[in-house]
Structures are given as structure tokens and as C-alpha cells.
């Protein structure tokens, strides 16, 4: 771990200003991901801005009938919130399928969205990795890629976004609220938050330097049956091989978002609209541009079968 300056911000705008003043600065909240990365110098920020004191830890109703979730709401509290459990079951289930109780107690909403990939080559500083060291190459594409991306990747990177929560947020059409160093705020759809790797896999989001997430808002509840099925090699405490989050309405329409397959939570609107016509079409549209490796090609079939299973469960619930 390299020496760094640590400061506590008092307001969101002040945090954003401080971050832009110190190139290489990072915000820290729960620290469940960043601290591990710093210990092994996978990340080496020179300046840390602690945002835990910003009072962004409330879940409030919005005038539109949705929920505004503060950036610092802990995963445990978000998953347990009565309104979330009642109206946004997908979110609660996705959260509870991630990490461990101890980690969820610390991990925050914004931090969860911004966590780094768990590609094993990213976390071994002896290995080339374009995400960690731009231009050094990708060890994973011709290496151990079983749990890496099958769609949306590039010749520079096939890392996946490891978040479960983000998959639910994507299916729920959440909006991310931010503040910029000049004090201006903006709202962006969660679909626009994460980038595909392209030739710059080290740039993972569309946030500008210093821009701080202050909240995530959920629109009015849309009802339906919410199911999150996370598939992994062991029963708990593992990142997804794939995960499928669905919201299914009684008439068979709905939404589907997939985790563990891409650099971002994967949702394709044309696939949503195909839901009444069955899983084959949905999956074909989700993965129209898939470029799997031999080691992770199974994910395509796994998503299709998991989706079929989830839709059958949804039917049973509705019946």
C-alpha cells in the first residue's frame, strides 16, 4: 500500500471539489473493495476522500411515487427496507445474493455500483491487464476466461461487472444522481452509467472526474413478479457465473437483466419486448453480438435455461 492523504468531506460538493483538486483521488465509503485493492497495489490512490459523513444514508419516498436511495445506504439496510421488499423485490433479492452479511453491513449503494471486476488477472499485479495498467495487454482473453464476459467485450478486455445489485437496478430503470465539482447536479439513467470496455477498459463509467454519486432513485413500482436467480459454483459467497433478474407481468410481458456476462449489467430493450414470445427469442436478442470464449460459451445456454426456469416459476407464482 502506498502512502496517501486522507480527508473527510463535509458536503457532497466539497467532496467532488476535493477529488478534482487531487488527480488520482478516490472516494471511500464502505471500503469493502477499495481497501483490498490498495493493500495489493492494484489501486494506488494518492488521496482518499471519506464520504461517510455526508448524510446520504436515507431512503425516502419521491413525489413521483418511487424511492430515493442515498448513496451511503448500506446494502443490508437497503435489502431489509420494507418498501424495497414490498415494491422492488428484485432489488432486495439481488442484494441478499451478494457477498456476505458482514460485507453487506459495510458496503454502500454507490460503492456497490462502482466496485471493480474480479477478473483474476486484474488482481495479480504480475500479469498484464489493460484495466489495471492501460496498454499492458489482456491476459484473460486467451487465458482463464470461464467466468468472464461473453458479450460487449473487446480485444482489450473481457472483464465482467461483478455487482448483483446493479442488475436489479438496471431492470428497475433506476436513475443515478450525482454532483459535480462545480456544484451542478445531474441525473443519468443507470443504463448510461457503466461503459463497455472498448479500447479503454480502465474507464469503467461515464462519471466525470470528481463527479460523486449522491443517490439512486427508483421510479414508481411497476408491480409484477420479481425473481433474481444467481447461478454459481457454490451455494453462497461467490460471484455469479450468470444471474438473471426478471420482472414479469401477469400478461407475460416484462423485463430481463442479466449479470455476469458483460462489462455492465446486461439488458437489451428488444429482448424485453420479446418476452411473450419465449426464452429462445429473448436470449437470441440478448446475445445477438455475443463473442464468448471456448471456456465461457456455456453461459449463453445457461442464461437461456435459467431464464426459462425463472419464467416458469413466475407463472406458478401468478397462478
Amino acid at each position: 500500500m502506498k502512502p496517501f492523504v486522507y480527508e473527510r468531506a463535509k458536503t457532497p460538493a466539497e467532496a467532488a471539489t476535493a477529488a478534482v483538486r487531487h488527480p488520482g483521488a478516490k472516494f471511500i465509503a464502505g471500503g469493502t473493495n477499495l481497501l483490498d485493492l490498495m493493500k495489493h497495489e492494484i489501486e494506488a490512490p494518492t488521496h482518499l476522500i471519506d464520504v461517510n459523513g455526508l448524510s446520504l444514508d436515507k431512503i425516502e419516498a419521491t413525489p413521483e411515487g418511487g424511492l430515493r436511495i442515498g448513496a451511503l445506504v448500506r446494502n443490508t439496510d437497503l435489502a431489509a427496507d420494507e418498501r424495497v421488499r414490498r415494491d422492488y423485490g428484485l432489488l432486495s433479492r439481488a442484494l441478499l445474493s451478494g457477498a456476505s452479511a458482514q460485507l453487506r453491513n459495510k458496503a454502500t449503494t454507490a460503492g456497490n455500483l462502482l466496485q471493480r471486476t474480479r477478473c483474476p488477472y486484474f488482481s495479480d499485479t504480475n500479469q498484464p491487464c489493460n484495466k489495471r495498467t492501460p496498454g499492458s495487454g489482456c491476459s484473460a482473453i486467451t487465458g482463464f476466461s470461464r467466468n468472464l464476459a461473453v458479450v460487449g467485450g473487446s480485444n482489450a478486455c473481457i472483464a465482467t461487472n461483478p455487482s448483483d445489485m446493479a442488475v436489479a437496478m438496471r431492470a428497475l430503470d433506476a436513475t443515478v444522481e450525482t454532483v459535480r465539482p462545480n456544484g451542478a447536479t445531474r441525473r443519468l439513467p443507470i443504463a448510461d452509467l457503466h461503459r463497455l470496455p472498448g479500447s479503454t477498459p480502465h474507464i469503467e463509467t461515464t462519471l466525470q472526474p470528481g463527479e460523486l454519486i449522491t443517490a439512486v432513485t427508483l421510479p414508481r413500482p411497476i408491480g409484477g413478479t420479481h425473481i433474481y436467480h444467481k447461478v454459481r459454483d457454490r451455494a453462497s459467497y461467490a460471484f455469479a457465473l450468470i444471474s438473471v433478474g426478471v420482472i414479469v407481468q401477469p400478461d407475460g410481458t416484462g423485463r430481463v437483466a442479466v449479470g455476469g456476462v458483460a462489462h455492465k449489467p446486461w439488458r437489451v430493450e428488444s429482448a424485453d419486448s420479446a418476452m411473450p414470445s419465449g426464452t429462445k427469442t429473448v436470449t437470441a436478442r440478448l446475445f445477438a453480438d455475443a463473442r464468448p470464449t471456448d471456456a465461457n460459451r456455456f453461459k449463453l445456454k445457461l442464461v437461456e435455461r435459467t431464464l426459462a426456469s425463472v419464467l416458469m416459476q413466475a407463472k406458478e407464482v401468478t397462478r
Binding site: R118, G143, F144, Y237, A238, F239
Partner: peptide, 23 residues
């Protein structure tokens, strides 16, 4: 085994999975 670089790739307890209680 990374057969190009000659090492065990999943060299931590997140990558090398052993049964948890739920298993």
C-alpha cells in the same frame, strides 16, 4: 493452471472455492 504463464491463476480464497456452510 495458466498454461502460458505457468501458475495457478485463482490464487486467493475468492477464486479457489471451497464449500461454504450452505454447501
Amino acid at each position: 493452471v495458466d498454461k502460458r504463464r505457468g501458475f495457478f491463476v485463482n490464487h486467493d480464497l475468492a477464486g479457489y472455492e471451497v464449500p461454504v456452510h450452505a454447501d
